[in-house]
Design a protein around this nucleic acid. Structure first.
Length: 495
RNA sequence: GGCGCGGUAGCCAAGUGGUAAGGCAGAGGUCUGCAAAACCUUUAUUCGGCGGUUCGAUUCCGCCCCGCGCCUCCA
């Protein structure tokens, strides 16, 4: 079975294959860097990350390009307000975004490209469009795309613009667009705002042209897939198609993937409702990066995800269960030999996970399969039916899962620590919760230090000095370390 | 208003024309020096409502109710 993906362009689920060789060329719309990323942004980026990881797991190479929009109205406005250049203003948010990606375990695309590094190429693109008659210049020096010249306009967002185009004509000399729907390719300079001198005159690019220019530059005139949040379908992606295909007369992106918005506590996230959270807000509140990633990845990308604090707690417990299972596989004493039934369970789980993911990236089904395996193997292990030679197959099944979810390795403490340190340098100390503080501190204790205390605990227990052993266990607990005595010996993990 | 998506147990959520995966939470039990972990049993006669098609629908069709998105720069 091969990957089947919902293609916004056709409105259907289609089999997905890269067009040539074994490499998937895809472009994902990245952030506009005027502020810290919020949890809604990251739902989309996690969804793209899940796609990326599954493609690689399926044996494809990836050429994944993500843009960073570092010039737009908001950025210009904020930079002007602060008396900064847009480069200086966006610098901090670019870095914050990259750090946040790492916090959430989002893999780096092969290429991250910035709009402001491609201004000349965008101007050239617009020049070519003008030459072919689909773009026109207005009196003030702005350029617009004439949608009436592009018959396919609306094919992505399924909008019918017939009858709306070329209605009451407005003269070009009237200093305005020909048609209300025509969109800006290039904006004439305004006093005090950032501008570039280019072959089509001074000014700055419109929003959509950067993605057309950069995607085709790095991926070719036709590439395999283009992804983004559902709001980008119109006008952004529709306009990208218009610009690109008007120029090349070739299919721009073969597949379009759109991630659905999330809700927060059942409501649309908005600053006015007070349910607007950046990733950093949530980490400072004491939520683990792994819980956040798990929750964001657990709901298939085309479903509306209801992001709740209860759900976050549930996600944390679920991750813990999976990590405990892995720890059990790693630390228990297994009898020699093998059990074909156990290996079969592992192989079946792998097959089911793949089947789920092949079905339009059904991460919920993948989760169901891995938890089935966890329950069945835990039960078998309790009955002594798991043997030493079964472990590799089980670990391999866990790896298949974690190649997508990436939550099994506990590196939460270090990530939380970094965010806590950021909060301190930004003067946001009061936003650091006790939980975040505790997690951050647990990162201070090295594995070796923990092992040392664990050793003393075990020695005391062997001597039946439970008072001492419990005291050590309590001490570790206070520092965010959970110590467990199992029949196979002692083991520990971070809270 | 136009176009589109969705409503499955307390919460998150999969799925199918043939009678409801999985996780979390809850209840009872097993194991255990205690704790933790783990396991077992249990929790939707029912899939927003009303009709229709069908031997049979949660799954197909129609209508209604509710939630959500886009309809010019919000992922």
């Amino acid at each position: 079975m091969a990957l089947r993906l919902y293609n916004t362009l056709s409105g259907k689920i289609e089999e997905f294959q890269p067009e040539r060789d074994n490499t998937v060329r895809f472009y994902a719309c990245g952030p506009t860097v005027y502020d810290y990323g919020h949890i809604g942004n990251f739902r989309t980026f996690v969804a793209v990350d899940v796609l990326r990881r599954f493609l690689r797991q399926s044996g494809y190479g990836t050429n994944h390009v993500m843009n960073i929009t570092d010039v737009d109205d908001k950025i210009i406005r904020n930079a002007v307000q602060r008396g900064m250049s847009i480069f200086d203003y966006t610098k901090k948010y670019v870095q914050a975004f990259l750090d946040d990606m790492q916090t959430l375990g989002i893999q780096q695309p092969e290429r991250i490209v910035r709009a402001t590094d491609h201004i000349g190429e965008m101007a050239h693109f617009i020049h070519e469009l003008e030459r072919s008659g689909v773009a026109y210049k207005t009196e003030d020096g702005s350029y617009y795309f004439r949608i009436a010249k592009f018959p396919g306009y609306g094919k992505l967002s399924k909008k019918d613009f017939a009858g709306m185009t070329d209605g009451a004509r407005v003269d070009v000399d009237e200093y305005d667009k020909d048609n209300a729907r025509d969109f800006a390719l290039w904006k004439a300079p305004k006093e005090g705002e950032a501008k570039w001198e280019t072959e089509i005159g001074p000014g700055r690019p419109g929003w959509h042209i950067e993605c057309s220019t950069m995607s085709m530059k790095y991926l070719g005139e036709t590439f395999d897939l283009h992804a983004g949040g559902e709001d980008l379908m119109f006008p952004h992606h529709e306009n990208e198609i218009a610009q690109s295909e008007a120029l090349t007369h070739k299919t721009f992106a073969r597949f379009w993937m759109h991630a659905r918005f999330l809700l927060v506590e059942g409501e649309k996230m908005s600053k006015s409702l007070g349910n607007f959270y950046t990733l950093r807000d949530l980490v400072l509140m004491g939520h683990k990066p792994s819980s956040l990633r798990f929750l964001l990845a657990s709901v298939p990308y085309r479903k509306q995800l209801n992001f709740t604090f209860d759900g976050l707690k549930q996600a944390a417990t679920s991750v813990e269960r999976l990590r405990n299972f892995k720890l059990r596989l790693e630390t228990s004493q297994w009898a020699e030999g093998s059990s074909p039934e156990i290996v079969k369970l592992a192989n079946d789980a792998v097959a089911q996970m793949k089947a789920g993911m092949d079905d339009d990236l059904n991460t919920a089904q993948m989760l169901g399969s891995i938890f089935d395996l966890v329950r069945d193997v835990n039960a078998a292990a309790d009955h002594g039916q798991v043997k030493k030679d079964d472990i590799p197959a089980l670990m391999s099944a866990l790896s298949r899962f974690d190649e997508i979810f990436d939550v099994l390795t506990d590196n939460d403490a270090g990530k939380v620590k970094r965010v806590v340190q950021w909060a301190e340098t930004e003067g946001l100390r009061e936003k650091v919760s006790a939980e975040a503080e505790e997690m951050s501190q647990s990162a201070a204790m090295s594995d070796a230090q923990v092992e040392e205390l664990v050793g003393r605990h075990s020695a005391a227990r062997r001597a039946k000095d439970f008072k001492s052993s419990d005291a050590i266990r309590d001490q570790l607990m206070a520092q965010g370390i959970i110590l467990e005595n199992t029949k196979d010996g002692v083991r520990w993990r971070r809270k």
